[in-house]
């Protein structure tokens, strides 16, 4: 494939004013944290903040992948089901090879299989969507059902649990700490950094934005749109697999309720973070803030009981809309 120089012009750098204005989600998170601390000072304890960030890691890592898909003009509704299927398959594979190979080898093999399944599922999505010319909404809605029912079939509706010894050996991946920071948070940070680099500092990243902004123009500019799109779904699949690698050691089991509605949370994190649902432009740090914000709302609701538990979902809805509004208002100003 030949590529043209000067593709950087596809997305001009935003002006200083727009950059300041785009801080909406961060301001929203800041405000929420102040309210949370006023309601319950325990919110600001190190252990609680680390709980919140660790929880945000699952949705956050998936949402980094979703940012690529959405910027390129696509959507992936299957991520929650995919996570469940990967978790279940991974546990079954690890249990199956359990005798023989050493514990470390089994875990490495399980992780490798998880990444392969994730990348494979992404490749399948991308290929069917681009070469098969079917709307991404429909393709991934289809696989949403397929992935989850395959898991339900594998687990006979119950749960799939990792053997006790393996579970103990694997658990540090979730519960362990490096330099005092829980591993899921470190992985989340690394994924976000890498995602930001790819999106903003590489040719591929600019192609993704060009494709989402105007597919025809990108095609005329000799961007291999098909390939660019397929790769976004592979990135998404890999991100889901990575999140699953961290999820499995937490409870050591997968069940049909694993990853339920994660797709909505991931997409919400992306949009709250300031990425346009119609594609074309977006930012990884926004997505990270979006994911943390969603988890924080839930955390605050559990830490206080001023609002009836029946209204939890309503509070979440209100906060999401307010943050989205703040962001919109700033942009216009």
């Amino acid at each position: 494939m030949t590529t043209q120089p000067g593709e950087a012009q596809v997305t001009p750098r935003p002006s200083a004013l727009a950059r300041l204005g785009s801080l909406g989600p961060l301001l929203g998170l800041g405000a929420l944290m102040i309210v949370a601390t006023l309601l319950n000072p325990d919110f600001l304890t190190l252990s609680n903040l680390s709980n919140v960030l660790t929880r945000a890691a699952f949705i956050g890592i998936i949402a980094v992948g979703a940012t690529f898909v959405i910027i390129s003009g696509g959507i992936d509704l299957s991520v929650g089901s995919m996570a469940a299927l990967i978790a279940g398959s991974m546990i079954l594979i690890m249990n199956a090879v359990s005798p023989g190979v050493g514990t470390f080898g089994i875990i490495a093999l399980g992780m490798l299989c998880a990444l392969l399944i994730g990348a494979g599922a992404g490749l399948l999505h991308g290929t069917v969507i681009t070469r098969g010319r079917i709307e991404p909404f429909i393709v991934t809605l289809g696989t949403l059902g397929i992935f989850r029912s395959v898991l339900t079939y594998l687990s006979q509706g119950g749960s799939i649990s990792l053997g006790n010894d393996l579970s103990d050996a694997y658990s540090p991946v979730f519960y362990g700490k490096l330099l005092g920071i829980p591993i899921p948070i470190l992985v989340f940070a690394a994924v976000a950094l890498l995602g930001g680099l790819i999106l903003n500092r590489t040719r591929y990243g600019r192609y993704v934005q060009a494709t989402g902004s105007n597919e025809q123009v990108a095609r005329y500019a000799a961007v291999n749109v098909t390939q660019v799109k397929i790769i976004t779904y592979v990135i998404q699949g890999l991100c889901v697999a990575l999140a699953t690698l961290l999820y499995v050691p937490r409870l050591g089991s997968a069940s049909p309720s694993t990853g339920l509605l994660w797709e909505l949370e991931a997409i919400a994190a992306v949009i709250i973070g300031g990425t346009a649902l119609k594609g074309g432009s977006g930012r990884i740090w926004g997505t990270v803030v979006g994911a943390i914000l969603l988890v924080t709302i839930e955390n605050v609701l559990n830490l206080t009981s001023i609002i009836s538990v029946y209204l939890n979902a309503a509070v979440q809805g209100v906060v999401i809309i307010i943050v989205a509004f703040m962001q919109r208002g700033k942009k216009v100003g």
């Binding site: 319950n40 304890t45 252990s47 749960s159 069940s255 309720s257």
Partner: peptide, 23 residues
């Protein structure tokens, strides 16, 4: 002390309990 919904699943049980322990 409090009653929160954990939706009859393991993940929500984990999250709600974490927050109870903080609180």
């Amino acid at each position: 002390l409090d009653k929160q919904y954990a939706n009859w699943n393991r993940d929500d049980g984990f999250k709600v309990m974490q927050d109870y322990l903080t609180r």
